[in-house]
Amino acid sequence: MKRQIPLMIVVILGSMFVVHTFVPHKISADFFDWFQDWIKAISPFAILLGVISLSMVNGTKIKRKAPNWQYSVVTLIGLAFTAIAGFVWGTQTGTPYMWLFKNVQMPMGATMFSLLAFYIASAAYKAFRARSTEATVLLIAAVIVMLGQVSLGAMISKWIPITSKWILNVPNLAAKRAIMIGVGLGMTATSLKILLGIERTYLGGGK
């Protein structure tokens, strides 16, 4: 039963959504809206699960004095502090919560994001080796597109930006579309497997 009921919910609701795709009727549209409200109602409970998990993982670490347990203390205090700040002073602009968001979370996020620039450089250095014919083609294309993006390319030859544009527009777009078609089909197949109950791993376990 523990398996059957969730499976039934998935199969029934899933089929209803398939029908919804083809039926524009008011009833179908209302069903969709009603369902959206449910999702909104469910997510707060899931947040609670997340917070419990976070506290448990870090709490255990602190209790057992696992290596680097001090980080866990910082995490938990940060969590409690942000939550309390939000509850006590609200989340409007000018409140401590927003201050934390603007001056702690945003710059830290931006820092992580900017690491990309460095990682791209080192990844390119490692990856682009003319090991085979295909790799050589990739290498040349990459150099042309990179040059085409900056003025140096146009200074070398007026053909570089034009070729760069062609590479992006033709071979690149073609490959991209092919992958997209494959992805679309893969998604459809997986969805179908879930609907038919063939794929049940999301319920926990293989079978």
């Binding site: 899931a46 999301y202 319920l203 376990g205 293989g206």
Partner: peptide, 18 residues
């Protein structure tokens, strides 16, 4: 994603049982 969390937990648990 916190909705994915309980599912992932259940999957790992079930895998150990299996």
């Amino acid at each position: 994603n916190y909705i994915v969390l309980p599912i992932a937990q259940e999957i790992v648990k079930q895998a150990h049982y299996e």
